[in-house]
């Protein structure tokens, strides 16, 4: 994107987003405990873990939906808790697992929502030309330009997912969180998305990818974090985390890494 070059320069100390001893609980049920993590610009970190391990809650904490019950989160060395909402949206964007929209917005209208953070209280007015250009470019990159005037409720899950990606691109933030972005995509669009992520990573963007797809984690991630029952079970380079022992502990199944490429084969036998 146009000003993504500035992303890598805008993070003194080389940490885009840092979590320090973060705790979170719904009412009395703890969901995340003692989460200390940092994500750097120009790196893709995959967060893996079984269902209910706290991955999506972690995303909710990082975009400011939830407030940690303990610890602190900093974005570009500024505390997230006291940051105004629009400013937060200029730093961090999110591609949700599934976009929930009860009303028939067009694709263009939804992608344009990505520019909300920059337009101040200009409700009711036309967007500035720079915003219009960013929206056009985002739709082109995500391959949804031809769907611009279609209603979101008429699109397939995969197309809706690409609209979410276009909105993230329009938002143009130095930190991007993607929650299962490949879940509804066909193989071709999965590969295109990974190429796109690689390109924005090279421009200095910090990417956090929540995924169940261990092959993507193995092939694309610079770092992998494995969550288990709300705690960090392992973190490090893909080769360190995506090993039989860690995956057996975290997922309760045995996985075999294929020797030639970094791919995984699910072994039906349960871990002991």
């Amino acid at each position: 994107m146009a000003d993504s070059k500035a992303h890598s320069d805008s993070s003194p100390g080389g940490i885009a987003i840092a979590l320090q001893d973060v705790q979170f609980a719904y009412a009395t049920a703890p969901v995340l405990c003692d989460i200390t993590l940092s994500f750097r610009p120009g790196e893709l970190t995959c967060v893996i873990g079984p269902n209910g391990s706290g991955k999506s809650t972690l995303a909710g904490l990082m975009v400011g939906l939830h407030t940690p019950t303990g610890g602190r989160i900093e974005v570009m060395h500024a505390p997230l808790a006291t940051m105004p909402h629009r400013q937060r949206a200029r730093w961090i964007s999110l591609v949700p697992q599934r976009s929930l929209c009860s009303f028939d917005f067009t694709v263009m209208e939804l992608v344009a929502m990505g520019r909300y953070h920059g337009t101040g209280a200009t409700d009711g007015r036309r967007l500035p030309a720079a915003d219009e250009a960013a929206i056009e470019e985002a739709m082109r990159l995500a391959g949804v330009s031809h769907l611009a005037n279609r209603l979101i409720t008429e699109l397939s899950m995969g197309e809706q997912q690409r609209v979410g990606i276009a909105r993230m691109l329009a938002q143009d933030t130095p930190v991007v969180i993607l929650d299962e972005p490949t879940a509804s995509l066909d193989l071709q669009h999965q590969l295109e998305l990974m190429d796109l992520l690689e390109a924005i990573k090279k421009q200095g963007c910090c990417l956090v990818l929540i995924t169940h797809d261990l092959n993507i984690a193995a092939q694309c991630a610079d770092n992998v974090v494995a969550l288990h029952q709300g705690r960090i079970a392992a973190r490090g380079k893909p080769a360190e985390v995506l090993c039989d022992k860690v995956l057996g502990e975290v997922f309760g199944v045995r996985l075999q890494a294929r020797g030639d490429t970094m791919g995984f084969v699910l072994n039906r036998k349960s871990a002991d």
């Binding site: 400011g64 939906l65 909402h85 949206a89 999110l94 929930l100 909300y116």
Partner: peptide, 10 residues
């Protein structure tokens, strides 16, 4: 939109 999308959009 959903709560998490609204929060992430500012």
């Amino acid at each position: 939109l959903s709560d998490i999308e609204a929060a992430s959009l500012g």
